[in-house]
Amino acid sequence: MDFAIAMGIVFGLAAIGSGIGMGLIVGRTIEGTARQPELRGSLMGLMFLGVGLVDALPIIAVVIGFMLMGKALA
């Protein structure tokens, strides 16, 4: 039971941090595109790269959470 709460904290904190980061990335990309629409293509590529890099951290937290859960339940 208390383990479920711990998992919730792990997943939730990971989601908050990466959510802020991704919001900044996408927001700035939209700002840049609004200023210079002709750069849309290259900005999109950079945005997806940045989103993918940020994406890794919460996912690693989730995987480690699942591994700990498997260990605790076994």
């Binding site: 993918g52 890099l53 994406d55 890794a56 996912i59 690693i60 989730v62 995987v63 699942f66």
Partner: peptide, 16 residues
């Protein structure tokens, strides 16, 4: 560590 775990984590979490 970060380079392989990025790929593994995304796909593994998806399958779970």
């Amino acid at each position: 560590l970060s380079f392989p775990l990025r790929l593994y984590g995304n796909i593994f979490a998806g399958e779970v």
